[in-house]
Amino acid sequence: MIYSLTTSELMGRPDLWQAVHALRHQIFVEEMGWEDLRRPDGLEVDQFDHEEAQHHLAIRNGELAGYQRMLPTTRPHLLTDVLQDLCEGPSPKGRRVWELTRYAVAPHYREGRWGVSSVGSELVAGFIEWGMERDIDQVIIEFEPMWVLRALQLHFLARPLGYQRTYGRQQVVATLLTFTDDTLRTVRAKRDHQAPVLQHGYPDLIGLKKAS
């Protein structure tokens, strides 16, 4: 299940807050080599964890299995303030456009070397459902170029916002994805799971784990 929490809701639950920022540090600093984000406490936090950010938590077996963060484009976000050189023209902005950042699946919830795991696709279904509830139909994503093909296979309408560049150990391209009912249908069909994944409220308490 995917739970969507505001930053203050997340901070109201120290177990979840700790798990989120530890997972982010583990994936983005230790695994992907974004050294600028390294912090001695092993909890990755940045200037965009502000009150308007929305945190999507994928919970499986009482633990944090996946995560993504949604940022409004009506105020500064990664593409405008950190990754400017990924965008060639004016960056898309507006109430219906959000930026998806820090997409992450915990290592033992990944499947195969290249496949999209069940947690990974649940996060995708989650942000589409979340967007549809709020009249949002576009997301900006900075991801590896090979994701573009998968987005097209899931019936997103995709448009590149700039050329690909190298960040850390990765190639990254900024892409604007538009989703429709057809996208949600396709994602659900590929997952073989028709029921909504977005859950309202808080998940149960999860175990406080030491950052590894």
């Binding site: 093909l149 097209l152 995709a158």
Partner: peptide, 20 residues
């Protein structure tokens, strides 16, 4: 690198379209 960028973007979208 810029030309490579153009070719790889165009190819990616071509493959996506062909798969659809």
């Amino acid at each position: 690198p810029a030309e490579f960028g153009i070719i790889s973007l165009a190819s990616t979208y071509a493959i996506g379209r062909a798969m659809q």
